[in-house]
């Protein structure tokens, strides 16, 4: 057998083997979170490379080594699920490098990190002043996780005591011109609804590259022809504008009328509408 045919056969066999092994090990292996997974990932890769090109050796030896390494990783993963102390031993624990805004030199020395390396890691997180950090941990994988001091964290609506509506994830209902039934079902819409919405936009199904439904049941589409302008949904901002106009109308009526009874009626309703507007604004302004 010529050696190049051997290489082709070996390549496909090992591709299949590696594929199934990573399928069994799952996403955890890919993310290489722990030391063990990191090591086994590299080793499995080099064994495969060696076994494919090392033609003088038996292919089965390489396969056995890969299977052993994968099963060992799997076993460790299962044991780590069961026992916390085993987990700490195998996967390692994070080392606290900064606490209460102070660098812990002892721990830094223990991990053999210099202050330059620490600041480089912090810079990768867009932190340039050590004084801004409240707490930082060196993860087992060698990355750093830092918690900024409260005053240095980005402002959130919660800080401003703003009320924001909760939002569900948008569902992609059309992809490449075909309807995705499962997404359509989880967004709670029917094919008939989708057909009506597309007709409203003057589009046919095969024109649509991608279409998403947001949590308000509005459809956003992107079409193949980028020269065509598709209107973006503006129903809610328009509704808010109409509400404001109606509220203003009622106030005008209340000023214009001379009839005391209807004056109070208009005033009461203008106030009601104002309350409604305040309530709806977070939901209607997009």
């Amino acid at each position: 057998m010529p050696s190049w045919i051997d290489i082709i056969i070996r390549s496909f066999v090992f591709l299949a083997l590696l594929f199934f092994m990573t399928k069994i090990l799952g996403k955890k292996q890919i993310s290489e979170l722990s030391f063990f997974e990191y090591v086994s990932g590299i080793t499995i890769g080099s064994i495969a490379g060696e076994a494919i090109t090392g033609l003088e050796k038996n292919m089965l030896q390489g396969m056995a080594a890969i299977i052993i390494f994968s099963l060992a990783t799997l076993l460790v993963d299962i044991l780590a699920l069961k026992s916390k102390s085993f987990r700490d031993f195998i996967e390692g624990r994070g080392t606290v490098l900064i606490k209460d805004g102070k660098v812990l030199e002892e721990n830094l020395k223990k991990e053999k990190y210099t202050i330059d390396e620490l600041s480089a890691l912090l810079r990768q997180k867009n932190i340039y002043r050590v004084a801004d950090v409240e707490f930082a941990v060196l993860e087992p994988r060698g990355t750093i996780s830092a918690l900024l001091k409260k005053e240095n964290r980005p402002l959130t609506p919660k800080d401003l005591q703003m009320k924001v509506p909760s939002e569900k994830e948008p569902q992609t209902v059309i992809m490449d011109g075909s309807i995705l039934n499962e997404a359509l079902r989880s967004s709670g819409k029917s094919r008939g609804w989708l057909a009506t919405e597309l007709e409203k936009l003057d589009l046919t199904l095969d024109n649509v590259f991608i279409a998403q439904v947001d949590s308000y049941g509005e459809l956003t589409v992107d079409i193949y022809d980028d020269k065509l302008q598709v209107p973006s949904p503006s129903e809610r901002p328009l509704l808010l504008a109409t509400l404001k106009k109606t509220q203003a109308d009622l106030e005008i009526f209340s000023l214009e009328t001379h009839d005391e009874k209807s004056k109070t009626m208009y005033e009461k309703n203008a106030k009601l509408l104002q309350e409604t507007i305040d309530k709806l604004t977070p939901y209607l302004s997009s």
């Binding site: 909760s166 949590s215 049941g217 509005e218 129903e235 809610r236 509704l239 709806l280 939901y283």
Partner: peptide, 13 residues
């Protein structure tokens, strides 16, 4: 909007 929204809170409002 109340019928088309997916979010319970929004539906209620």
């Amino acid at each position: 909007l109340a019928l088309n929204s997916n979010d319970k809170g929004a539906q209620e409002v």
